[in-house]
Design a protein around this nucleic acid. Sequence first.
DNA 1: GCATTTTTTGACCGATTGGACAAACGTTAG
DNA 2: CTAACGTTTGTCCAATCGGTCAAAAAATGC
Lengths: 210, 210
Amino acid sequence: MEAVKPKRRTRIQIEKRELILEAALEVFSTHGFRGSTIDQIAEAAGMSKPNLLYYFRGKEDIHTTLMQRLLDTWLAPLRELDDIGDPMTELRSYIRRKLEMARDYPRESRLFANEILQGAPRIMPMIEGELKTLVDEKTQIIRGWMRAGKIARTDPYHLIFSIWATTQHYADFDVQVRAVLGPDRGGEGRFEDAARFLEQLFMEGLKPKG
Amino acid sequence: MEAVKPKRRTRIQIEKRELILEAALEVFSTHGFRGSTIDQIAEAAGMSKPNLLYYFRGKEDIHTTLMQRLLDTWLAPLRELDDIGDPMTELRSYIRRKLEMARDYPRESRLFANEILQGAPRIMPMIEGELKTLVDEKTQIIRGWMRAGKIARTDPYHLIFSIWATTQHYADFDVQVRAVLGPDRGGEGRFEDAARFLEQLFMEGLKPKG
DNA sequence: GCATTTTTTGACCGATTGGACAAACGTTAG
DNA sequence: CTAACGTTTGTCCAATCGGTCAAAAAATGC
């Protein structure tokens, strides 16, 4: 195994690459990979297409760079889930943090959803590697809580899936959520309503059986 | 308001249009609208591009036809949710039916998800109309159950969202679910495991408070 | 069988796409 | 100042895209 090249970067390169990735996040998350064009990204980043291609080898390169960074931030809340706190409180915090991410980083959520929806053609290794390892690890912790009678016995994998699904729904299906709630209830308050609902659902649903 | 033209169709037209829609469902659901090409659809339908365009005016036409049909089948389980049965049983059946649809019609789910993810540019009217109306109607029924003390008091809109999110997750994020569960647990049994988990979560979560 | 209508095809078109490239322009160290 | 290096741009290209069209082929009605 060879170490990754150090890749000396100038100040301008660092700044411009950052600018491009921010623009690409905006474009990719709203149109998907194939639906986005380099021109769109270049324009959003305020530069010409050839100029953008001076900083990245190509469209694919931008996308993979973006996805690699994304996964880290995206899995951060799950990483924080640990053994030392009270199980119910830990899970409640996890749900809250996940919902906050859906609220504050909807583009990241949609970018990820777009990729998975289409069969994860470009990030399958990360799913089978990093992500699976982390989930396997955390389900063990959850299983421990169940054995200790701290939370109801159930399938820890599907528990995690359901937390992912319910929270990310508010980012990925945002337009539908807003349309269904209507103008009066679809405002910013929808996230607090969602938080209250999900907290109740999961806390009651996971209460250990006497 | 003018009635839609009767549009006399020959036997061949009916058959071929069906063939094309089936092929288009396959292609659109895996690559999204912009990611799919007419050539791909034509090949999947076993005909040439000009031949396909003899039956549909264009790419957009195929997509909207597909979406219009889809929404009906897609909302069918929610339509069945009614007042006459036992509330808990009704909700349990709804969840089960929804999960069965994710299992049996994953392409339809992904097609829908793709469209919503990108801001529902082509089906917004259906969301704000048909879908919203139905949800408004059903939340009233659910609210009635809550007032009658049959299920726990909570937000009926977010309850429906969470059922949609958790069930459709198994279609939309299928590759991720399978990758995380691994080869041993990611087989066909995953849907039964999911059904058991979701049933427990929602039934316990919605149990009326004594 | 024959005329009419429906279906299928190959060739083609303009627009857009991802990307290459060399020349021009800026910046900076000596 | 100037040579070396980093950055930006205009122009170009081949491939692919959605869609057209006229003519050939097949099906249909009489």
